[in-house]
Simulated scan of single mutants.
Amino acid sequence: MKIRNILPFSLLTLFIFASCNEKKNSETNRAVGEQINPELEKQAILDRLNNETKDAFKRDYEAWTKNWVHDPSISKVYMNFVDSTFSESIGWKEISQFVKTFIEEHPEPEPVPKLLNKINVRLYGNGAWVTYEQQDSIRGLKRETRLMEKINGEWKIAGMQTTIYGFEMD
């Protein structure tokens, strides 16, 4: 008879303990969420994108690699409407080799485009969706989309789509 009385009491105690723990986790998550400053995150992403651009145009392969997530599922896509070309690279190994080969074949640095000061950012926890336009002195107007991931406190590029529109003809 005593065992029957202990079982409901034990279940009630377990339920109360679990409810308290759930509330604590919820409060912890809320506190972490409140600490995120969207403007600081946006600035960190902007800095990363500008560094990646500078490194690529200066042909600094080693510095360029530090801007990217090194993962087999990342992607990089170029669509060039000016010359009707398209390229797609999937995975860090392929993207890295593509850029390394490009730098070896085109070792002379190019003029760095005007650095970004305006980007659209949607934050999703440790991820961000970024869009922007950039004028390239050689290729003209480019619209870019970047998928960013925050790894060990640093934003890195996990996906890139660049559409090149060229220069407007008057």
Score class of each variant (00 low, 15 high):
132 Y>A: 06
80 N>I: 00
62 E>W: 04
116 L>W: 04
126 N>G: 15
26 S>Y: 07
66 K>V: 07
121 V>Y: 00
76 K>G: 13
86 F>V: 09
79 M>W: 09
66 K>P: 05
121 V>Q: 00
91 G>S: 06
88 E>V: 09
147 L>S: 13
38 P>D: 00
69 V>K: 11
96 S>A: 06
73 S>V: 09
102 F>N: 12
118 K>D: 14
133 E>Y: 10
157 I>V: 11
82 V>T: 08
115 L>P: 07
87 S>M: 13
47 D>I: 11
116 L>F: 03
32 V>G: 01
101 T>S: 09
105 E>Y: 04
20 C>E: 13
133 E>A: 12
163 T>D: 11
24 K>S: 13
91 G>K: 01
34 E>Q: 12
45 I>M: 04
134 Q>P: 03
64 W>D: 08
78 Y>L: 12
27 E>G: 08
146 R>M: 05
82 V>H: 00
120 N>L: 06
141 L>V: 07
90 I>F: 08
73 S>H: 08
139 R>K: 10
162 T>R: 03
51 N>T: 10
10 S>D: 01
45 I>H: 03
24 K>F: 14
73 S>T: 15
122 R>Y: 06
19 S>Y: 07
99 V>M: 11
146 R>V: 01
162 T>N: 04
39 E>F: 05
72 P>N: 12
54 K>A: 09
73 S>Q: 10
30 R>W: 06
48 R>M: 08
100 K>N: 12
153 G>I: 01
58 K>T: 14
127 G>T: 10
114 K>D: 14
113 P>T: 03
118 K>T: 10
33 G>S: 14
98 F>K: 15
165 Y>M: 09
163 T>E: 14
68 W>L: 12
27 E>S: 10
140 G>D: 00
61 Y>S: 08
166 G>Y: 01
4 R>H: 11
31 A>L: 15
131 T>G: 05
148 M>K: 01
153 G>N: 04
111 P>T: 06
106 H>F: 05
81 F>R: 04
46 L>I: 01
127 G>A: 15
80 N>Y: 01
44 A>M: 06
10 S>L: 15
22 E>M: 09
79 M>L: 13
76 K>R: 15
90 I>A: 06
3 I>C: 07
59 R>L: 00
65 T>W: 06
166 G>Q: 03
1 M>L: 11
129 W>E: 00
150 K>F: 03
76 K>Q: 14
26 S>E: 15
2 K>H: 10
104 E>M: 05
169 M>N: 15
87 S>Y: 08
88 E>N: 07
77 V>P: 00
67 N>H: 08
30 R>L: 13
118 K>L: 07
2 K>Y: 07
76 K>N: 15
12 L>I: 10
141 L>G: 01
168 E>A: 14
111 P>G: 05
124 Y>R: 11
28 T>M: 11
143 R>V: 14
118 K>Q: 13
130 V>K: 01
116 L>E: 03
10 S>C: 13
128 A>M: 04
110 E>T: 10
81 F>S: 06
8 P>W: 11
132 Y>G: 03
109 P>D: 01
91 G>Y: 02
169 M>Y: 14
135 Q>K: 11
37 N>H: 02
22 E>N: 11
9 F>V: 13
103 I>A: 04
130 V>L: 02
64 W>R: 10
120 N>P: 03
11 L>K: 01
9 F>W: 11
42 K>D: 00
31 A>S: 13
13 T>H: 02
166 G>D: 03
164 I>G: 02
166 G>H: 02
62 E>R: 08
48 R>P: 06
168 E>G: 14
48 R>W: 02
